Simulated assay, not measured.
Amino acid sequence: MSENHEYLVPFSDKSRSNLRAGCENCFGLCCVALYFSASEGFPLDKDAGQPCLNLQPDFRCCVHKSLSERGLKGCIAFDCFGAGQKVSQVCFCGYDWRKVPESGKQMFEVFLIMRQLHELLWYLTEALTLQPAHSIHGALSSMLDETECLTHLSPGSLMELDVAVHRADVNTLLLKTSELVRAEARRGYKTYSGRQKTFGRGADLIAADLRRNDLRGANLRGAYLIAADLRGTDLSGADFIGADFRDADLRGADLTKGIFLTQAQLNAAKGDTSTKLPSSLTRPLHWGLSKNQANE
């Protein structure tokens, strides 16, 4: 593997510590606010605002330790980016929807808005660490501050916020960041035996065998990578925003230099201890051992 990986700047996990789920400080909002269907890897069909049958009085899940064994992939993959504890402890000052039932409907709606804002904070925080995007770091920093301020609005103001407009403004900067990083990644590799291919946003790569493609610096935004074979691939500089990794095979893949990857995407994929991950993300507990380790 080439040693030319200078286009990324290491960043501290502390910079995103408030963007990680803290279930101990949340009122089980993801188990109540969301609509989900049993066909999507959840325990049952459930309407938005209705508590999941596995949610306990202390807001913990009674089957959390056996989600993988039960095949509850939807629960495994979900990540609130820390929005749950922000809404529970900051927006609603620690008053939960059980003790104050009249706050429930508003709390659940605010949670859905907050999750979107926290996801944007995740991407913007990472964008500010990417050296190729240094020319727009000022704009990124301003947008980060603006987004953070929005997360501290009152519940009523948050419900009036046009999140779609704000997402579009953020996305303009993230697209520019992606272009700069991916161009630098491609310049860093002079030769490669694999086939270079350009993918458009939302590319249909379901069950595709991508092992012979050169995916360094690839645009995989919104790509459908469901059950795709990415074993042993180098994904340096690839943009993963919105990519669907459900059951994608990442065994032996190198994602350390990929950009805009989230824990939820990893949780939905298949991998093992030979999969190389960015330092900001955690190897899912349900991933198995590598083939070599399994044979030891």
Rank of each mutant, 00 (worst) to 15 (best):
R115M: 11
G94Y: 13
I136D: 01
K86E: 11
G138W: 01
H134C: 03
F92G: 08
S142I: 07
C149G: 08
S88W: 11
T147Y: 03
D145K: 11
L140G: 04
W97I: 11
L124I: 09
E119M: 09
W97V: 06
H134F: 11
H118L: 03
Q89N: 08
M107W: 09
C75S: 04
T147G: 06
I136E: 04
E109F: 02
M143Y: 04
L124F: 03
F81Y: 15
Q85Y: 10
A133W: 00
V110P: 12
V87W: 06
C93D: 15
G138K: 00
T129M: 01
L144N: 05
A133T: 05
L124N: 04
I113Y: 03
M114T: 03
D96T: 12
E109M: 06
S103D: 14
I76Q: 14
F108E: 04
C80Y: 00
L140W: 01
E109R: 14
K99T: 14
M114C: 01
W97D: 10
H118F: 09
L121V: 05
E146S: 14
H134A: 10
L144Y: 13
S103R: 15
E102D: 11
F81Q: 00
I113D: 04
D96N: 14
E119A: 02
I136F: 05
I76D: 01
Q106Y: 02
D96S: 07
S103M: 14
I76M: 13
G84Y: 03
E146I: 12
C75A: 11
F78V: 12
C75N: 05
G74R: 03
L121A: 11
Q106W: 03
T129A: 14
K86Q: 12
M107D: 01
A139R: 09
K86H: 13
Q116I: 02
M143K: 10
V100S: 15
I76G: 00
L130P: 07
C149F: 07
D145P: 06
L144S: 00
W122G: 03
W122L: 02
R115I: 05
G82A: 02
F78W: 10
H137M: 04
T129L: 02
G74V: 09
H118C: 07
I136P: 02
E109T: 08
V87A: 11
